[in-house]
């Protein structure tokens, strides 16, 4: 799915819930190879900002423009080029890990591939667990599976909200590998308060 240079531009982005303003007039531009780190106290709007970039929420004002060599992406094309790992993004407990990956591959228009899916599970540290129901997974294993889901289609824009939540040391190392690989492939946006993860940022946006 890689499509060369990608640009993510936030133009005058504002979000308010009633009279409570989360952020106002956020302006920034990210190019392929760059990482934006969004920090701020709890409730400052980090997750909301990522949801807006992903198209899961609408801004009160302003817009997000994601472009590649073929021009600005509409929602249909954006779905093929965007990956998200977030606490409020959950995969299907009643399916196995492999069934989850096959399902999301099919609705993304990618032919389900057993070898590739198993390789992906191995990459995130879930080798040999593909046939188990996700409902039986620990929270750390579910977080690893979210990574497999998010990078399955080699997205040019990857959004990671609290990327190391629930992960053990090996999991954190896996997350680092994903982050490094994404910086070579496209744009990365991290929402975190972890000082070590903040160091990845070419740009840092502090909210709240």
């Amino acid at each position: 799915m890689g499509i060369g240079m990608v640009t993510v531009e936030l133009k005058g982005l504002s979000k308010a819930f009633g009279s409570r303003v989360l952020f106002r007039d956020v302006e920034l531009k990210l190019h392929s190879g760059q990482c934006l780190v969004v920090t701020g106290r709890n409730g400052s709007g980090k997750t909301t900002l990522l949801r807006i970039i992903a198209g899961l929420a609408r801004p009160s004002r302003g817009q997000v423009v994601i472009t590649d060599g073929a021009g600005a992406m509409d929602p249909s094309r954006l779905r093929k080029h965007l990956g998200l790992v977030a606490p409020d993004l959950v995969l299907y407990d009643e399916l196995t890990a492999l069934e989850n990956l096959f399902f999301f591959a099919r609705i993304r228009g990618i032919p389900p591939d057993q070898d590739r899916s198993e390789a992906l599970l191995e990459y995130v540290g879930l080798q040999g667990r593909g046939g188990e129901l996700v409902g039986t997974f620990s929270s750390g294993m579910k977080q690893r599976l979210k990574y497999a889901y998010a990078i399955q289609h080699s997205p040019s824009v990857l959004l990671l909200d609290e990327p190391t939540t629930n992960l053990d040391d090996d999991g954190v190392e896996m997350a680092r590998r994903v982050i490094t690989a994404q910086r070579e492939r496209g744009v990365l946006v991290l929402a975190t308060n972890n000082a070590e993860e903040t160091a990845y940022g070419d740009q840092v946006l502090r909210l709240g």
Binding site: G55, L56, A86, L89, F104, I107
Partner: peptide, 16 residues
Amino acid sequence: ETKTANALRLSADPNT
């Protein structure tokens, strides 16, 4: 309820 809707929204065309 199970919060799987977001993964679906992110991956599939609405009419799908």
